[in-house]
Design a binder for these strands. Structure first.
Lengths: 212, 212
DNA sequence: GTCTATAGCAGGATAGAC
DNA sequence: GTCTATCCTGCTATAGAC
């Protein structure tokens, strides 16, 4: 994310991602992106062919890479706890997204881009689902399963892991609404409280699989 | 939502809402809206002053009204169960959003519009939060509180109710991702399964408030 | 209230010099 | 690879006839 001065192409990816996340694809102009990247108006078409293809490149060359870093952070957090419980898995998940390896600006960028792609499904969404979300959820599912008693319906297990992700993303995306409902700013005191709430809520939620 | 033939203004609100929800504010042109509403290009400016003010009118005159219907449905579902448990409250909540008084098209429209406004906070978001979300969440909080044992921290209680809403909205908005992860289409067999999962997960989740 | 016509501008894309 | 200049399409908004 740091101003990569080495070449125009990189700067276009950086600024393109930032602006697409901030305002959405249609609301950003190539003029705005090239100005922010401090290069010529024609550069997007030269390097990527079109505005649309810059958008796709952002997902392939920036977003996907960052998603791998988030997963890596999640795995490393868990590696530090060899006798891990279910709570550790869920805590690491919430942590990776809400306090993980990204700066605040990166996190906002990353999650907003995904949200926008969900709202307007395009070619990028396939990549995001198949190469990132699906394998990630299934990986976590495998980590969660051994902690549950007896037979667990696979579909309900996946729904539960998805629900956890849903809660995490919601508290990030609905920030203004959450803030006003609990009458509390998203400051550095509130964030750990949020992570601990999400972990506790989800931990009990997932135990609904045991008790029926 | 049904093609209101009475006057141009109403048709503009209907089609405007549909298209804004489908594509987002910037991606829709007034030409597209007026064509869909089967009226003249100049009609938006005559009736609302500008495209932006049509967007605001959609929230004030359509979205907010529909939100009241959802709340009404929720209250009526509960009114039928005088000795209601916590499960009934949560079930009614999930039901109001996912199978409630809206047609599928209306539901999609309603929830997508809110999602887009969350992504690009503008004047409409204030109205949505203050006049709809906040009172609704607080009302549900009051219904949930008596079912919990002993002293409950108010902020954590509100976070829990927000989490439930988060799970519900997530399963609606992340539909393509959910579908691919659980390998299951969103058909009429799957939906009740989803509602029952959300209810069970959230019910256990909210009991995290009791057990600490 | 609804129409046509158009002003006035911003958009993405490209050609061709350097 | 980067620049300028420009094409052309599409946009919002408005003026003014009906």
């Amino acid at each position: 994310m740091a101003e990569a001065e080495d070449n125009t192409r990189e700067r276009l990816l950086d600024q393109g991602e930032r602006l697409f996340a901030e305002k959405g694809f249609s609301a950003v102009s190539v003029r705005e992106i090239t100005a922010a990247a401090n290069c010529n108006l024609a550069a997007i078409n030269y390097h990527f062919g079109s505005k649309q293809r810059l958008y796709l490149a952002v997902f392939r060359e920036r977003w996907a890479h960052r998603a791998r870093r988030v997963r890596q952070h999640f795995l490393e957090t868990l590696a530090g706890k060899p006798r891990r419980g279910l709570e550790d898995v869920i805590g690491a998940m919430a942590n990776a997204f809400l306090e993980g390896p990204m700066s605040e600006a990166e996190r906002r960028c990353h999650i907003q881009l995904m949200q926008r792609e969900m709202a307007d499904p395009g070619d990028a969404l396939n990549m995001v689902i198949e190469e990132v979300m699906r394998p990630y959820i299934l990986e976590i599912t495998d980590m969660v399963r051994p902690h549950l008693n007896g037979f667990v319906d696979e579909r309900r297990l996946r729904l539960s892991v998805l629900s956890i992700l849903g809660v995490i993303l919601y508290f990030f995306l609905a920030r203004p609404a959450v803030s006003r409902v609990v009458e509390q700013e998203y400051d550095s005191r509130f964030k750990p409280e949020l992570v601990s709430h999400i972990t506790a809520f989800s931990l009990h939620g997932i135990h609904s699989l045991n008790q029926e």
